[in-house]
Amino acid sequence: MKVRYGLGIAGAIALALAVPAQAHHSFSAMYDSAKPVRLVGKLTKIEWTNPHSYFYVDVKGANGQVVNWACEGAGPGALSRRGFKKGDIKLGDTLIVDGYLAKSGAKIVDARRVTLPDGRIVNGGTPGDGGPGDPTAAPAGKAN
């Protein structure tokens, strides 16, 4: 009884901590799965880090303006297991990133699928998980 009460209090407090949707952790928790998007841009910065990697691309919008976007990827271990190593991309490379927009509207995407300059595709998802590039997923739009 007191155990459940104690856990209940903790849960209620946790729920009361309204969280600004900036960072993430589970795919479906902070990026919007109804907003798949494709970014095409030149790599300006790479952070090959744990718990998540970040690569930044300059994307030219429909109005000609260049906007820098952050693409959040898995950590180095997971990327390496998917065949994506630190030396595979360098600044200035053009990347095609399929991902989901952040719920907050910030210029950051959850990078699910990256097409490298040599045409190789690195997939952060798994077939059938409903992510971008998956037949069960919604069609991608363009970022602006």
Partner: peptide, 9 residues
């Protein structure tokens, strides 16, 4: 540690 493949996890 930050750039490690296994140590961090």
């Amino acid at each position: 540690l930050r750039e490690s493949e296994y140590a961090f996890p």
